[in-house]
């Protein structure tokens, strides 16, 4: 589905990375590994066409991605390393807003089940700014289920999460893969998640 070919990025005359090749097909999970500042987020942003590469190209369904951008966006959920939930609103209000924005057909009982699995069910009526960073991160990951799209692009989804939650996320990744979904995520930490390919930056 996504093909990254000989991608290089320079910023302020500094090479971030060069000649990166990767191919993300159905049912594939790709992990981008590297130290801080190695260019993991930059590569994810380039795939989302937010950064112009110095050379190379990105293809979506065999065509140049930037010419079919909005079709690509219809199939992608991106979760950044910062949380997008609105801090002044409650968990419940944030979920409602996401459901409306992404025209989600997910039922309330499904949401309740996921909240229970992520141990967020007791915080439903609390404002997001009263949650810990790990809890807001877990809430953010709920967006993956609400948006229900084929491709997940995630920047450091495992940081600040306990082992139990990382296991739940690993299981969610497996479920998504079994439904022919694809995932590309960055991480600087080791985990038990079974990936198809690792790209070291």
């Amino acid at each position: 589905m996504i093909l990254v070919k000989d991608l290089s990025i320079e910023r302020s005359d500094k090479k971030i990375f060069e000649n990166i090749n990767l191919s993300l097909g159905s049912g594939k999970i790709i992990l981008l590994k590297g130290k801080n500042g190695s260019g993991k987020t930059t590569l994810l942003k380039a795939i989302l066409n937010l950064i112009e590469p110095s050379s190379g190209a990105i293809y979506w369904k065999g065509k140049l991605l930037k010419k079919h951008l909005y079709d690509f966006f219809n199939h992608v959920t991106f979760i950044a390393d910062k949380t997008s939930s609105l801090s002044k609103l409650s968990v419940h209000e944030n979920i409602n807003i996401w459901k409306k924005i992404f025209s989600s057909k997910i039922s309330n009982s499904q949401i309740e089940n996921i909240l229970q699995t992520l141990k967020l069910d007791t915080f439903v009526n609390q404002k997001v700014n009263s949650l810990s960073f790990g809890e807001t991160k877990k809430l953010e990951l709920l967006r993956l289920i609400i948006e229900n799209k084929k491709i997940w692009i995630l920047d450091e989804p495992l940081s600040n999460l306990d082992d139990e939650t990382i296991d739940v996320i690993g299981q969610t990744f497996e479920d998504h893969r079994s439904k022919e979904g694809s995932i590309i995520y960055s991480s600087h930490q080791e985990s038990e998640i079974n990936v198809s390919e690792e790209v070291i930056l």
Partner: peptide, 12 residues
């Protein structure tokens, strides 16, 4: 700051 501008953009 919270990335919602980007989410709106990715939402079409």
């Amino acid at each position: 700051d919270n990335g919602n501008l980007l989410i709106m953009h990715l939402n079409g």
